[in-house]
Design a protein around this nucleic acid. Structure first.
Lengths: 246, 246
DNA sequence: CGGGAGCTTGATGGACCTCAATCCCTGTGG
DNA sequence: CCACAGGGATTGAGGTCCATCAAGCTCCCG
């Protein structure tokens, strides 16, 4: 892997071939990293949007709150993820964005986005690609919650986390760090934290995964995949340049 | 409303100001409408993507099938909706796209999209806006399935359908045509068709909505909104042109 | 008039929730 | 170094929402 201190670029590198000029622009987009401490919210549902952030390090979570006080976690963005792309285009943010651990982010606003779209048309396509992948994950998530049993969807989610972390080099062989609480998982999976606990217990008993002390060890990837009917989300490397006239 | 026979343009007209050249291009993108008869699939999960369709008339449904034979309906696209934008960018389609009623579609492929992005940068932004709105709906849907009770999420979904139809002029005051079966609704809401039936019964009993003979009448929008804690998805009219240097 | 798709209703069971108590771990202050 | 507090994990008991199975119904269409 061509090493690059920047997780966002590292991820893009696997998706598409970028010119030096494009990379330079993307680097210039990610300046003045901002530290955000654990628990702090940096985007709030209903508030003025038009801002987005690229996560440099740490774990975060984006969620919607419902009237009855419950939460639905949409995703747990990690290093290399671009959060709030939606709120750049909608006038108000439709979700809250909160730090699960201390984290570092860089801010991208609408003028920056516009500059990117007009000066580097290929990068516009790349953004669409990023959004498409994000939406594909959302749809998997939807199918999980709608049609999979608690144990299946938990297994599925763990595998998904694992793969996402791998892309940015944050997981070792079948083992990764994960600061999420069982309540976090419950809010993502549409389950109570109590039930998440029982499901994790079951997964441990079956010798599939152990999740303890913020550390996840997958013991039997094959069996876990089978249980979850997990398929890797289209992680095709696009060679856009060859198909276009840019 | 400036009338335009084309539902896609009619919808865009409410979202953003377009120049005549842009409109002309969008019209040229939607040529050779293709008739698709009820029940036919025109995109299949796992198959080669790189194709998308703009729906001109009729109802369709996009869904994922799971290993156990169940389905999760992602959305019921209607006239004016652009289906399969994701599969244009991912190499394989991650969902199946099927006609619920006879329908008409126009095909948009990757070259068309590329031409649009390079020749009409503002339209690239518009596509991002469309995708952002679509994703916002998905997230509402996710929250519904994850955290709302069966009756709440059914109510919510009916209101959403109502609003979507209104945007393209297909619903009259608190009354609209809807060809979906209870099984369709169940697959969208993560419920069994039997339970959908009971929920609809309850909604009728409470004098909130009646859904009969493919016809939905909302009797008490206010109460229904309250039950569903429904908020209209950011339907902001964007004046992009003023903010950009295009 | 027969068949099929979809709607309706009842009975039963199971998956998951809620409440509640206990335990564990880590950080903090005396 | 210990005591304590608090967030999180764990486990049990009981209840509820929704699924499943099954039967009958209605409506439409050939």
């Amino acid at each position: 892997m061509r090493s690059d201190e920047n997780p966002f670029l590292r991820k893009l590198d696997k998706l598409v071939e970028l010119s030096e000029a494009e990379k330079a622009f993307l680097r210039s987009l990610q300046v003045k990293p901002m530290k955000v401490e654990r628990g702090r919210e940096i985007l709030r549902e209903g508030e003025n949007g038009n801002v987005s952030y690229i996560l440099q390090s740490g774990w975060s979570c984006s969620y919607k709150s419902l009237a009855n006080g419950e939460r639905q976690v949409i995703a747990f963005p990690i290093a290399g993820d671009w959060v709030g792309l939606r709120s750049l285009f909608l006038e108000t943010s439709d979700h809250t964005f909160k730090a699960v651990t201390d984290m570092e982010v860089t801010r991208v606003d609408m003028p920056g986005m516009q500059r990117m779209l007009s000066e580097f048309p290929l990068l516009g396509t790349v953004v669409l690609l990023i959004v498409a992948r994000e939406e594909a994950l959302l749809i998997e998530h939807l199918a999980s919650i709608g049609r999979r049993s608690a144990i299946e969807r938990t297994a599925h989610y763990i595998l998904e986390l694992f793969d996402r972390l791998r892309v940015v080099g944050l997981s070792h062989i079948e083992n990764f760090h994960c600061p999420l609480t069982q309540a976090h998982l419950g809010d993502a999976l549409g389950l109570s934290s109590v039930h998440v606990n029982r499901v994790l217990h079951e997964l441990r008993t079956r010798n599939l995964v152990t999740m303890r002390n913020h550390n996840v060890s997958i013991h039997d990837v094959g069996a876990l995949r089978e249980l979850a009917t997990y398929h890797v989300v289209a992680s095709v490397r696009l060679s856009l340049r060859q198909r276009t006239s840019f």
